[in-house]
Design a protein around this nucleic acid. Structure first.
Length: 112
DNA sequence: CTGGTGACCGCTT
DNA sequence: AAAGCGGCCACCA
């Protein structure tokens, strides 16, 4: 039987799939979740973040490769610090999506 | 059901 | 390049 998951659960599932050392954009997650236009819903879903311990919301950035201002969970862009620990280096507070943006399938299939 | 909001994205000045 | 505006979808009162 199909998993009648709610919109949020699907979003959380995708976010949890983000490998360490990689980042994904809200739009990317939205598309993987099922609808590309859920970008705002994705942000809202992470806002409620029922399981931050298993939901690496800090690996989620906007399409500019920058963390959201409203994030600052704890004060300041501490989120960037976490990414640095994961191996994702940021420049001027911005991440190079060309190098760190997660691509679905890279962990299931060999890249070139 | 209606109105308002939001951790966004895309296009247009 | 940056800023402004609208559009899209889901949730809350």
């Amino acid at each position: 039987m199909e998993e009648r998951k709610n919109t949020y659960d699907r979003i959380y599932d995708v976010v949890k799939r983000i490998p360490k050392g990689k980042v994904a954009t809200y739009g990317q997650i939205a598309m993987l979740a099922g609808n590309e236009r859920w970008s705002r819903v994705v942000g809202y879903a992470l806002h409620v973040n029922p399981d931050p311990q298993h939901i690496p919301c800090h690996r989620v950035v906007n399409r500019h490769g920058e963390v959201s201002s409203a994030f600052a969970f704890g004060g300041g862009n501490r989120q960037i610090e976490f990414l640095a620990v994961e191996g994702v280096k940021s420049e001027d507070g911005k991440i190079d999506l060309a190098l760190y943006q997660w691509k679905p399938g890279m962990d299931a299939e060999e890249g070139e």
